[in-house]
Nucleic acid binder design. Sequence first.
RNA 1: GGUCACAUAGCUCAGCGGUAGAGCACUACGUUGACAUCGUAGUGGUCGUAGGUUCGAUCCCUGCUGUGACCACCA
Length: 793
Amino acid sequence: MTLQNSSAEHGTTLEKTYIPKAFEGEVYSQTLDKFSALDHCTKYNKNKLNGKTYSILMPPPNVTGTLHLGHALTYTIQDILIRYYRQNGYDVLWQPGVDHAGIAMQMVVDRKLREDGIDPHTLSNEDFIAKIFDWKEEFGGRIVEQQKLLGCSATWQQSRFTMDEHCSKAVIEAFVKLYEDGLIYKDKALVNWDTKLETAISDLEIVNKEEKGKLWYLRYKLEEDLSRHILVATSRPETIFADVAVAVNPEDDRYKDLIGKKVIIPIAGKAIPIIADEHADKDKGSGCVKITPAHDHNDFAVGKRHGLEMIRVIDKKGHMISDDPVIPELRGLYLVKARKMIVEILQNSELLDHDEDVVHNVPYGDRTNTVIEPMLTDQWFVDAPKLAVEALKAVKDGTTKFSPDKWENTYFDWMENIRPWCISRQIIWGHRIPAYYTPDNKIIVARSEEDAAKQAGELGYTMSQLTKETDVLDTWFSSGLWAFETMGWPNLDGDGSTEELRKYYPTSTLVTGFDIIFFWVARMMMMSLYFRKDVPFKDIYVHALIRDEKGQKMSKSKGNVIDPLGLMEEFGADALRYTMAFMSVPGRDIKLGKDNVKISRNFITKIWNAARFLQMNNVCFDKSISDVKVDNSLSNWIVAKLKKLQSEVDENVKEYRFDFLARNIQYFLRDHYCDFFIEAMKFVNDEDTKAVAGAVFMEFLRIINPVMPFVSTYLAQNLSGNQAKDLLFESKNSLDGITAENEEDTDRFVELLHEYRCANKEDDQDKVESIKNQVLSAFGDTAMVKGMFKIVD
RNA sequence: GGUCACAUAGCUCAGCGGUAGAGCACUACGUUGACAUCGUAGUGGUCGUAGGUUCGAUCCCUGCUGUGACCACCA
């Protein structure tokens, strides 16, 4: 057993220490061009294809993003699946791409321009968009480079950008079709309005924050008898100028006789009616609620029911407007300041009865962190309740399955209560809504200018008389088309499909965190079912979110963000990937610290050292298991364990139990292969067993390749001496013909050794002898048995 | 307010209707030719709480307490 120097036959001697940085980049670039889907099968894998396909849509990261741990988790899982199926003869597609991230991107470039001393408002929209494309050119590839460092084997050749020419076409086609089918409409409605960005945002882009506030009880005097009043509680006294009624519950005996009478709004002095509406809750506040349809979602509904006027007193910047200013100083004041001023005035009058401290949720925009104001504006909506019907059905009938299935409830709950989706945004960056307005405000929606001109002509207008819509679409509108726009839609062949769609649609599995079930998963379900009449994916695997060691959400402001790039630099991408797999237990958030990754690195070191041992002993790695003699109990046993590992891994991948997968890999290598097999082999020292050792180890490297592609490829190349060796398309070695009937015997031997050791320690000589005799009679007085006793002694 | 998770060793977490598991930490021993990025051995738990089902419950059921997440409301 001497150390073998480098030779072509036995590969290159491994370095003493496992330093992932030394080879990960090299390994990746060797395999990079083999990831492509549509032609890889013919080029690299023709003979092994099993005729089945496996496809995953990569959730496109924001173009502004950098790799964070959440990405590392989700991409690792996806890459494990892709690599596993690719190895097993499937024709795989892992569709990558980048999202244009409407609001986020605009804010990033806005900030950069200001830093460079340019006022974004002085630029025309076209110039601003050009600046954004400049930014994308310079930094847009960052996130993709980082995905590659992690080892992602995506089908890079097929990569898409949601604002590229093709996707833009798809968006226009989808919009126009939905409009023609009456599923997109324009409506005056109360939307969530970000006063900083001056745009509408969707319900999902709001974060509620609990805040201490006050409830002011105001006296609304009865018009017919000014000595009497009712109390109305409000947390937003600045909106009293927009009050159009006070509502009471029709069942509320206290106020029954007042219904239909009028009360006077404090300060404003205007008389408004008392109406009966179920919205008023007898047990809340005073039981009377002021109705301000233009500035409150519930009141808006009440206003519509009763045909009330909608008065706006807050403008798009959050400033007070009023046609009839009782207090002129209010005009133009930011609403928070206005509230303060009005409260002061009220306090100095008898109109404020009392106030009350309360804690209430205040909506903030998730991007700008400013207060969101309900705003009465014209917006474009998708009729989500209609589209949700099919999307709901597809999950109910099991066409698409959630895993773990508890997420189905979340999905159902949302889909059943879905509201119209506001898709228009008053920003610059995004897909411009393909609509035009005639001078008398008729709407023309068209696929092209020519088409618009034609439609205008039919209405008796010329193109030059039309004004084009300036609103752009919510980013998630284009993301919703991701499943099929990436596969060539709408450039369809004669049969209404494309080669990619026929091959890879519906995709096999969608891997995602639960935080975007609503944003993305639900929208893709709706859009795909509408445009392709089929679900976008068959399985949805929902993984956990990553938190810091203390279980807190990682965020920049908390300063507890762990950078995956730093972890990869220090411990290697394989260690990070293995950690992600190991920790991805379903239904529980992942608490991750640096130590977890270090432990994984240490395990990989164990694999490394096992490889070095084999190499030092001139173990042959070029024979496959079917070519080696498995003819003694030790060989038989390790092959049985390997066989078990193979089937466990198959099962683990099928059930998305990457934690089990990682554990099983560890148990095999450490407990079986190193602790017993290698130790015992030291005393056997025959060529057949050594050949088994090599073949088993190579199969082990193949099995771990999807999880740890770098180290497994590197070791395989160096051990075999074949620098071109690539486990990417290496499929399973069948162990069917190999018997493993004495697996239990050897397990028993391992157990007896343990008992022997305990007895030895307790100095129980009788027991020591008895165990020794048991072993000798069952397993014979072989060199291996002797050797193992020697170790234990 | 509604929904859903979770509670197991000092820490992070697996697990399971029948003797309680891993890693980290800790203790002791070990630089013995693969491995100190390590090995061997060991300490450590009435499995949140109260009931119920069962021959038997950490596991199944119910209540409670605590923690977290999501949705809704917020006069």
